[in-house]
Design a protein around this nucleic acid. Structure first.
Lengths: 190, 190, 190, 190
DNA sequence: GATGAATGAGGCTTCATTCAT
DNA sequence: GATGAATGAAGCCTCATTCAT
């Protein structure tokens, strides 16, 4: 058996790509990514057939990562507010603890190189959260709007919130709370 | 006194850049932009010293364009709600009528090539609108948060709204209204 | 008016490609071709969109070149033998005077990168010669065989002849004559 | 006494190389050859020190293969015509039954990577055939020309014949016969 | 011995920018 | 001023070869 293809190396490339793309955008060169991963440029192409595939897999991976962050401690039996707040907090925490992941995600999300297929794959997966958002729509002010509207709105508002949190870390906690209240007011009944 | 020919060509390049960047992202080549502008490749560099300068000037220009759209018919003496709603409507209308401008703006806004200086320049300018947003913050739920939070929030929510409008044009009007109500609920007092 | 795209440069690239391919085969790098043409590598791609196009255009060009060599002094009203001999002589002379062109042609002819379209284009053009070959078939030993058989046979036999001529230049003239007689015996009546 | 496993693998690589080179030319990657041979990429280099050696050994091997095909049933005591016709038929049959071998041979024959040494080795070996060709030259129209001229000519004419046979299989037999008659007319006395 | 992961040199191509006309 | 041909650095990707397992 030859040297086995270590999952480690693939992960290292993905991690390096995250950081490099966060910094330089989707235009970051494969060379710079490989270097950041401490891997030869040729090696990168053993794990990803081409740059587009790398970009798309990273996108899906990051979406998966967010979802993981939301699953831990999800209050399945809690009130709607509790559940939505968990989603909000989990997302904001994830974003603040992994600024590179968050920035890379933003870059990838607006890139023409991410396929519809990948965006599809990025959506599904965490049914408890989806269910909560669905319920929020049905019972709230956004009644009649598509599910994606609510989730996109949460993402957008959380993004705005995080920008302020990053600018003024001292008031971060305050922003996180106010941001959620704003979202809740925007979406919940009454 | 006709505008000098020079101005026309510069404008043509900016217009072409808007469309090309909307389609291909910030990575669009200067050659493709020049071609879309029906201008020689080299001519582009007579109006913009380099690509970065073009990108930054386009960004500022687009921001200016949005502001222009907001000025027309601004209800200076109207209620706070009226004034904020005018901002919302003007922005959404601008975005829906100029999808290329909107898409280009999104691409530029997340690009690492847009300098802080340009972002600065892009902010200021329309005092009536700024005043309304300021008042909204002071008197509303977002009290204590920076001005930029409110405006960024409006932009983000409008962006989400426009995505839904574009996806389902039949319900566009409904989305625009619901979107505003959501924003108003999020930001206004009580 | 900017520097006009000189036909000279295109020709220089084609000439350089001929020599480089003659020496290194179709695998010759675009860099080596550009260098041989005393042109920047990027310039090569202003004249040919990609390497395949360069290869194919060179192929057609060389075929055209052969045909030109055959046209000069073609004895339109001569006997069949005279006309076929002219073709033979013109081809062999061309090959011996332009060894690089001949070698490059051989390389291109067997390459998978030359399209059927190019091979098509390479065929037609010199009707007097085609007519003579057609007549040779109809009236000779190869009656019933396709036209291409006769021309391919001539090419193949001439190629063999030239190899011997090159190996032993002292007897070149003798080889050329004997080669033709062999071809004539192979194809002509009786 | 079974052939050592080693020999099998070596043969598999050569067989795979034949097919791959027939299809993709000499530029076929060692990886693709290894894959076609169902062998690990690295294993190829246990049997051939480098790609050039593989190419050269394959060339010699294929030449040997042709010769084998000619030996079977060679009419040692037959007339000159019988013997030459056997050579012709054996070669054409070999080429038509093993199109990949034939195509690979063509590619290798024109490649700059095949050394003079290999070409040398490829020549000799089947004395009965060489003798017949020698006699054909001495007694025929090609008198005074080198031995290689006659054999190259046969090869070239057979190649042309096979091209036509492949294009129009229905008339294959007719082409094979006519081709031989053409060759015989070209080379034999009177 | 066999394997295939790892490598980096080198290949093709794009592109921002310069400059002769 | 305008043009677009020319350039070469840099980008993406392939590939022969090595070597740890």
């Amino acid at each position: 058996m030859p040297r086995p293809k270590t999952g480690d190396k693939r992960a290292a490339i993905l991690r390096a790509a995250t950081e490099t793309i966060a910094e330089d955008g989707v235009g970051a060169s494969t060379a710079s990514i490989a270097k950041a991963a401490a891997v030869a440029e040729g090696s990168l192409f053993r794990y990803f057939p081409d740059k587009d595939k790398l970009l798309n897999e990273l996108y899906v991976e990051l979406k998966l990562d967010v979802r993981h962050a939301m699953i831990a401690g999800f209050p399945v039996a809690g009130s709607l507010r509790k559940r939505v707040q968990h989603i909000w907090n989990a997302y904001v925490t994830w974003g603040m603890e992994s600024p590179a992941k968050r920035k890379a995600m933003v870059q990838l999300a607006v890139s023409e190189r991410i396929t519809g297929q990948s965006r599809q794959e990025g959506q599904g997966g965490f049914e408890d959260a989806t269910g909560a958002m669905q319920q929020l729509i049905t019972q709230g002010k956004l009644s009649g709007l598509p599910l994606s509207f609510a989730s996109d709105l949460l993402l957008a508002m959380a993004e705005t919130t995080m920008t302020s949190m990053a600018t003024n870390p001292a008031k971060a906690e305050r922003y996180r709370t106010t941001g959620f209240e704003a979202f809740w007011s925007a979406a919940a009944k009454k």
